[in-house]
Amino acid sequence: MRRPSIVASLVAGVLCVSAPAYAQADLSGIWQPRFHEDQPERLPGPELGDYLGLPITEGARKWAESWDPSRLTVPEHQCQVHISPYIYRGPMNVRIWEEKDPRTQEIVAIKQYISTYEQTRTIWMDGRPHPSPNTPHTWMGFSTGRWEGDMLTVTTTHIKQGWVRRNGLPQSDRTTMTERFIRTGNVMTHVTVVRDPVYLTEPLVKSQNFVLSLRELPQQNWLWVCLPVVEVADRPSEAQDVPAYFPGENPFLAETRKRRGLPEEALRGGAETMYPEFQQKLRGRR
């Protein structure tokens, strides 16, 4: 190679290396979910006793079988928020914007405002570490992000205890979530990988799609007002009564099995029920 070509190559190389990462996608805007995936669970809501396709532990199953929906009438539970691994599954709008350092215009954080429960997420992009385990947990947790090409990858810790599925299946406060936000035109795909060493035996992967709204939404669409009240006037104090079923005596667990004609071993869930081989196993029994 002649000398001028070497110089030109070096200059071109330096320009490429030093150029800012303009290739990143811009997720800013108002996004609205589409419910073609897992629709029965996401809008009507899951049925009691249906844990199919979830890699839950025996402890998680027992927790859910004992769970009484009447727990949600207890005042402290009435405004219980869907934690960040679950909140994107429901009816909601999400506004995304970037916060930049005014001096350098570098992205410090990507913010999300989620209309359900009026939740704000901050995804720190400035390389800061996650805080000490001794600091408070929140519904949305503490998030840090990085770009992998056009894909925003987010790691979240410090999430409060909440749902894996809102029919009583718990998710523990030791959960870590990895997310991918992928924009393709006016569609954004959101993939979550949830690892819960307490209640899951394997990572749980879910996805949902959003479409960009080209119009601002009415103000009320962004609000979620929740004021707890006493709903059961003659209930004893919580010292005497936290609604729950005695193990093995929840009378409603068999309803789903009867209505949908599914075998109990499928509805009980567990890692095996996530995989195609489980369908073949059931077919082989017919």
């Binding site: 207890v74 385990p133 408070p136 947990h137 406060d173 009564d241 936290v242 729950a244």
Partner: peptide, 20 residues
């Protein structure tokens, strides 16, 4: 760790349920 009321509620529920 430092908490707010929510963790106490879940903890109260747990101890009460086990006691019951």
């Amino acid at each position: 760790r430092v908490t707010d009321e929510w963790e106490v509620v879940e903890y109260r529920d747990m101890v009460t349920i086990i006691r019951d």
